[in-house]
């Protein structure tokens, strides 16, 4: 993935570096934890505590899905996470070489949809995609050759340090 177009505006190279986060890591739960920690730390000063929680939750759900389903807990495979900051928030993309994402995952589940997890039935799973659709904006997916590419946006309210 080429990132040079992310340097919009008149930013100096140093400032541009701060606005781009890029990492590749093994598709394992512990590595997901470390990537989340690094991503949140990089952008923490731009976000309220609530926004940071939302950011980490969306990323965690997407990355966990890659580990558990795309690579089917095979304990091998690489996940690539790229985040670019712009004036309105964060653009995030996640890619992997695993199996294609089932179409059902991309369907936004409406409140009265039978596919939506119902608290009364005490579901132990199925909340991940529900949370992703609920919290992420402009969620998009592309299968390119043998790669999955999932992208979303997280709008951020301007923080003091960012003004």
């Amino acid at each position: 993935m080429r990132a040079e177009r992310a340097q919009a505006g008149s930013a100096s190279p140093d400032a541009a570096e701060g606005r781009i986060f890029h990492t590749s890591f093994p598709a394992r739960p512990q590595a997901v934890r470390e990537a989340l920690r690094a991503a949140v730390a990089r952008f923490a000063r731009l976000m309220s505590a609530d926004e940071a929680g939302t950011f980490e939750l969306i990323l965690a759900e997407i990355l966990n899905n890659v580990v558990e389903h795309s690579y089917q807990d095979a304990d091998e495979g690489t996940v690539t996470l790229s985040i670019v900051q712009d004036r309105r928030g964060l653009s995030c993309s996640i890619s992997d070489d695993g199996v294609p994402l089932p179409e059902d995952c991309l369907r936004r589940v409406l409140p009265d949809d039978p596919g939506r997890p119902q608290p009364g039935n005490l579901p132990e799973g199925g909340f991940g995609w529900f949370l992703i659709h609920d919290l992420a904006e402009e969620l998009g997916y592309q299968r390119d050759a043998n790669r999955n590419l999932l992208a979303f946006r997280l709008p951020l309210c301007p923080q003091k340090e960012n003004a």
């Binding site: 929680g53 759900e61 005490l122 579901p123 132990e124 909340f127 991940g128």
Partner: peptide
């Protein structure tokens, strides 16, 4: 300070 859907699923399983 952080709970994801896997953690939530574990809590539901414990409750059941």
């Amino acid at each position: 300070t952080f709970l994801d859907s896997s953690g939530l699923g574990a809590l539901v399983a414990i409750m059941k």
